[in-house]
Write a protein that binds this DNA or RNA. Structure first.
Lengths: 213, 213
DNA sequence: GCGGAGCTAGTCAAACTTGATTAACAGGGG
DNA sequence: CCCCTGTTAATCAAGTTTGACTAGCTCCGC
């Protein structure tokens, strides 16, 4: 289901209560529209869907201050919090969740305790190593390599991605072990959220230099 | 539009004329269902869609030998060939096309001439370098790094991905320059396609060891 | 004091993706 | 011979994603 649910739940959670446009702005602030499918349509859709599923509670509120159609505010339910934490953990530990889930999860990792984050990242490294082994075993049988011709380059690419991904993860582990950032239970942590009324330096329409999908 | 169109066009092209199940089998043979969204539903959908758009010509053929509902065969039209080549070139040269488009394009790169492939890959490296520059410029203003807290790790991750992706591409360039593989105009090249009647070692249902999305 | 540029907030149709399900036939066991 | 399983081939409904569009409001210049 991609990473939107994680991103949207996380954004709403950090505000306590938020409407769609706020979420949209936060995600843009994080550059999420560049590395995930966090486009307006998807965000509003995710909000409605998750409200229907009980992960969010919807408040039909005031006909909006400051122009525009009446806006709905959302709040994360208990069930939504569980889902959020599950997605967060999966994003960090499970390579199959995809790279956008990883990126999103990194954005919220400080909501967990340092020790748990380290455990999850180590899990990820282990999963990558295991996947690598099973693939090389599978694609490099007795016949020797080269039997796949240039098709082997595809496999080569995925193996390389797994290797470099694992290497990067190890780097992050070292930084976190070294005391970087402030995690849950360690005092006020950095909140990457726009304060009420703060202008968004990356507002929609302002083209980022060198936009990258 | 993801990489399916490229994959489906390529598969049909290699057969000359193919029905959905053949395409599906080829893509599974390449492991495409693991690194792209090449699932049955998507394949059949792509075939119909592209037939409607004139990229493929559909033949309502025989009520199928060997069981199953009557099958439709497809053939790539001239317009479809153009689209195929465009997607192929974009997949190789443009990082924004995504990694699955790259993987698919690698699978078909031998349909182009060696010199062109090298040019396209160099374009990719250049695009990655340029993207990297614009991002670092954007995210590392005067205030110095660290202003983003742990959010900076997300950027760090994408930069690392770009760097390692470029490095891998350079490796491929060296191999191709070194004479690896057989490209268009160089004689019979490796065809990663299942011959008529050949059994598919990766048939649906046989679980791959360590499946990775 | 008005007109349009631009922001705020969200909707919508069309396309795409997914996983389950259908449907036809082949072959083997009892 | 008849049922049951497996294979071949494809469809379908439900959910997602996309990009374009709507619509209210403010503010600025003229």
């Amino acid at each position: 289901m991609s990473a939107i649910r994680l991103l949207v739940l996380g954004a709403v959670r950090q505000h306590g209560r938020a409407h769609g446009y706020q979420v949209r702005n936060d995600l843009e602030f994080w550059g999420a529209h560049e590395w995930s499918n966090a486009k307006p349509g998807s965000i509003y859709h995710a909000l409605k869907q998750m409200a229907k599923q009980g992960l969010l509670h919807a408040y039909e509120t005031a006909p909006s201050t400051a122009g525009g159609p009446p806006r709905t505010e959302y709040e994360v339910t208990e069930q939504g919090t569980e889902e959020f934490l599950a997605l967060l953990r999966a994003g960090l530990a499970d390579p199959e969740a995809g790279t956008d889930a990883l990126a999103g999860a990194i954005g919220f990792m400080v909501e967990l305790e340092r020790a748990e984050v380290l455990a999850l990242l180590n899990e990820r490294v282990a999963a990558l190593r295991q996947w690598r082994e099973s693939v090389t075993e599978y694609y490099t049988p007795d016949a020797g390599p080269g039997q796949f011709g240039h098709i082997g380059e595809i496999m080569n690419y995925w193996l390389d991605s797994a290797d470099t991904g694992a290497e990067w993860t190890r780097g992050l582990i070292r930084r976190v072990e070294g005391g970087a950032y402030t995690f849950a239970g360690e005092g006020e942590h950095f909140v990457g959220v726009l304060a009420e009324g703060q202008e968004n330096p990356y507002a929609t329409g302002v083209p980022h230099p060198g936009d990258h999908r």
